[in-house]
């Protein structure tokens, strides 16, 4: 992606860091990641045109209902995240929420989350549930509010701007001692959904728990994800987006970019540090730098995607 990276001067990149201390943006072309800019879109609308069309923003792990020391006001940090998205000079049409909308699956938490998310200017909100959203035995609190897109199965697909989006659920087939599970029925549905699609179609897959094993002792992975990856292998551009671990972890394997997003609520420790994946308490002045959102832009004449992360700092 040399044409994109060349438009960003070092001075411009430093200027962009002043906005939100935002993360690095990557352009993905042929499976190769190229660092491009830091929150370029928000800092310079004219220059941002060269970066492509804003496609969508990923929000994750809003945990509405959490009120402990690690962040006593998760509504406020979600509000700041929404402000960040709404301030983009070119609005993405879609927002994807990769789960753990609520902390305890309680009706009042879902109601508040819906109320806060309704302030997004983007016209479509697409969600998948996290394990915190599905602790009621019937999962009815989630499905009553967000089940329509999937006929209450949780998984569904749609197309936007030539990109095929696949929303998957890996938190419902709960197995004691195990990782997340997609299950045979959902994998068969994916095979059917992808059948006949051109290998040049950019694919975005999103689910709550990571679709590759990041740290098995904490359940940071999905046991049957390799069967999904087998189905995605023939596509030239695949972006796999997850939440769950409240921090950015990224890898590229062939034409597949794997990326986990920050939470808007509270950070979690790095894999294996401490007793388990609970809320990480950090000094208040550090919190904003550990929360944030991810953005994805269409580049290279719509054939590939670029990814950026912004914090609330």
């Amino acid at each position: 992606m040399p044409e994109e990276s060349s438009v960003i001067s070092r001075r411009r990149a430093l200027a962009c860091m002043a906005f939100g201390g935002a993360g690095t943006m990557f352009a993905l072309a042929g499976g190769v990641l190229t660092p491009v800019a830091l929150a370029e879109a928000a800092a310079d609308p004219k220059g941002a045109g060269a970066l492509g069309k804003p496609l969508f923003v990923q929000l994750s792990d809003t945990h509405i209902g959490f009120n402990k020391e690690a962040n006593p006001d998760v509504g406020a940090t979600l509000g700041r995240s929404i402000d960040l998205v709404n301030a983009l000079p070119r609005q993405p049409a879609l927002v994807l929420h990769t789960g753990d909308i609520t902390h305890l699956s309680r009706p009042a938490e879902f109601d508040l989350a819906q109320q806060l998310l309704s302030r997004l200017r983007a016209s479509e909100l697409h969600t998948v549930p996290g394990e915190h959203d599905t602790t009621d035995s019937t999962v009815s609190e989630y499905f009553n509010r967000f089940g329509k897109a999937s006929a209450n199965r949780g998984y569904y697909s749609f197309d936007h701007a030539g990109v095929h989006f696949v929303a998957l659920v890996n938190v419902l087939e709960f197995k004691p001692g195990g990782l997340g599970t997609l299950g045979a029925e959902q994998l068969a549905w994916v095979a059917d959904d992808l059948r006949g699609r051109s290998a040049s179609t950019p694919i975005v897959v999103f689910a709550h728990m990571p679709l590759w094993t990041i740290y098995e002792p904490w359940g940071w992975g999905t046991g049957d994800a390799p069967q999904l990856m087998e189905q995605l292998r023939r596509f030239g551009s695949v972006t796999v987006l997850n939440g769950h671990i409240h921090q950015i972890v990224q890898k590229v394997e062939g034409n597949v970019l794997f990326h986990t997003a920050r939470s808007t609520a509270y950070p979690q420790p790095q894999a294996g540090v401490g007793a388990g994946p609970g809320p990480l308490k950090v000094p208040p002045e550090q919190l904003a730098s550990m929360l944030g959102v991810s953005g994805v832009t269409l580049v290279n004449r719509g054939r590939s995607l670029a990814l950026s992360d912004a914090t609330l700092a």
Binding site: E131, H132, T134, F174, P176, G177, G219
Partner: peptide
């Protein structure tokens, strides 16, 4: 009787 935490299935 065996049980687990459905949020953290490794807790049994």
């Amino acid at each position: 009787y065996h049980y687990a935490c459905s949020i953290h299935p490794r807790m049994v």
